[in-house]
Nucleic acid binder design. Structure first.
Length: 431
RNA sequence: GGUGGGGUGACCGAGUGGCUAAUGGUAGCAGACUGUAAAUCUGCCGGGCUCUGCCCUACGUAGGUUCGAAUCCUACCCCCACCA
């Protein structure tokens, strides 16, 4: 993000205006707008520590927090190290597995690191990280029942969509109680950090309002909530999936190249919406890009801009440029020039193979190693269906074996599945 | 606790003794067409192999009947509905 594009506006009233203008506002509690117009607030968003990395599906709330800070507020990142042990019934059709405590703790640390790319941890509105394990795990059951449970009727809880949706398939008492633990989080952050705003996906509405309810009852204070729309791609597919897997922020899970490709492949119908949600670009700049896109759809300028910006935001300018260069080299037509191979290897998914193994390695095995096939049978069928290529040349021989002659730059072989999935096989110097 | 219904591949959902690795739909993957888009059409879609074929695993779990079982029997586990 270029510094010229950062806009620092102090009036907090702009938060709602900005969020609304960019499509973040699904719903907000009565009074939220007036409160935010009155001055900067401290607000929080919770993240589940169910994996050791956040994924693009988490980006909307992350951007929400970032805007909060840019417009004068203090962001709190709440990591659910305690609630992660319970599991939110919202959006889930079935009971969630409960993760071991050690796993959750490790995930908490990883996620915290990733969020540092989006919010500043210094300055007068420095972001704070809180882990609800700190107050939820020591919490005694009797205290919880008295201090939190007493303020809610089961009738109220049954009204919540997240619970209603599970009345058919069943819901455990543990997950039923989830909203109370989240309500308690809000109450705790209100007291410990003066937090007056909670943001989250629209599936969090019930949990957020439960927290507001708790604070109103115990303290007679009105706090606020804002929820973001849940994203679906125009095609109806789940947002944030690619090749059947999540698109992660962790470069070790999703390479910068793949990350860039994910955004580049955005449906035309989603491009504008995504530019507003996932970049800090001024709305006028986005409108320009959309106009250019309409004039020349094949140029896909909006997607290019989106991919460039989001990749830079998550992985840095350098990685974004590298991913863009790799895309150009691979999709520019023809086989990539020899000299490009080393550069491609730096940003694309890759897999290492010992030099002693390469000669004579069956292609089907190489494809498995590269993760481009989940079984040899699948690899064989794919080859027969003209779905795989080596260094840009379609391979149709099921019994094909790799040979030193396949190496480019002495150590690279580019395997491709379909049009878009590439893995750079890199031969190790040793062994 | 009682009565009834049910547990099939990623999901939904057929299938009531051999022709069933199991109909159909969705999702996914690949091919064609394109703009690395959408829509459409085509193929694939449990795993392995010495691959016009062969072998293994699979229809909640464990046994049993049978030449042969997802299909029949027994026990157990789990889910749902109604009643208590």
């Amino acid at each position: 993000m270029k510094s010229s594009e950062w806009r620092t506006i102090n009036a907090m009233t702009d938060l709602i205006t900005t969020l609304r203008g960019r499509g973040f506002l699904q719903d907000l509690t009565p009074g939220a707008e007036a409160r935010l117009a009155a001055g900067p607030a401290t607000g929080y968003v919770g993240f589940d520590p169910t994996a050791d990395s956040l994924h693009v599906g988490n980006l909307v709330p992350i951007m929400g927090l970032a805007w909060l800070q840019r417009l004068g507020g203090t962001p709190i990142v709440l990591i659910g190290g305690g609630t992660g042990m319970v599991g939110d019934p919202g959006g889930k059709r079935t009971e969630r597995p409960i993760l071991p405590v050690e796993t959750i703790d490790a995930n908490v640390r990883a996620i915290e690191g990733q969020l540092r790319r989006f919010v500043a941890f210094d300055g007068p509105t420095a972001a704070r990280v809180r882990n609800n394990a700190d107050w939820l795990r020591p919490l005694a059951l009797m205290d919880f029942l008295r201090d939190v449970g007493k303020h809610f009727t089961v009738n109220y809880m049954l009204q919540k969509e997240s619970v209603k949706a599970r009345m058919e398939s069943g819901i455990s008492f543990t997950e039923f109680s989830y909203m109370l633990t989240q309500a308690y989080d809000y109450w705790h952050l209100y007291h410990a950090d003066g937090c007056e705003l909670q943001m989250g996906g629209s599936d969090q509405w019930g949990n957020i309002t439960a927290g507001i309810e708790l604070i109103a009852r115990r303290d007679g204070v009105q706090v606020h909530g804002v929820v973001f729309p849940l994203l679906t791609a125009a095609s109806g597919a789940k947002f944030g999936k690619s090749e059947g897997g999540n698109v992660w922020l962790d470069p070790a899970r999703t390479s910068p190249y793949e990350f860039h490709q994910f955004w580049l492949n955005t449906d035309d119908r989603d491009a504008e919406r995504f530019l507003r949600l996932f970049t800090f670009l001024p709305l006028e700049r986005i409108a320009d890009a959309v106009r250019a896109q309409a004039a020349d759809p094949a140029g896909r300028l909006a997607q290019r801009l989106l991919a460039r910006e989001v990749t830079a935001l998550v992985h840095g300018e350098e990685e974004a440029a590298r991913a863009e260069g790799a895309a150009k080299s691979i999709f520019g037509g023809g086989e990539a020039a020899d000299a490009d191979y080393a550069a491609l290897a730096a940003t694309m998914p890759s897999c290492a193979i010992a030099s002693s193994e390469l000669d004579g390695l069956p292609l089907v095995d190489a494809l498995m190693r590269a993760g481009l096939a989940s079984s040899k049978g699948e690899a064989r069928r794919g080859i027969e269906g003209r779905g795989y290529s080596i260094n840009g040349v379609v391979e149709t021989d099921v019994n094909r074996r790799l040979a030193p002659g396949d190496l480019r730059q002495g150590r690279y072989v580019l395997l491709r599945k379909g049009k878009k999935n590439h893995v750079m096989v890199e031969v190790g110097q040793h062994e």
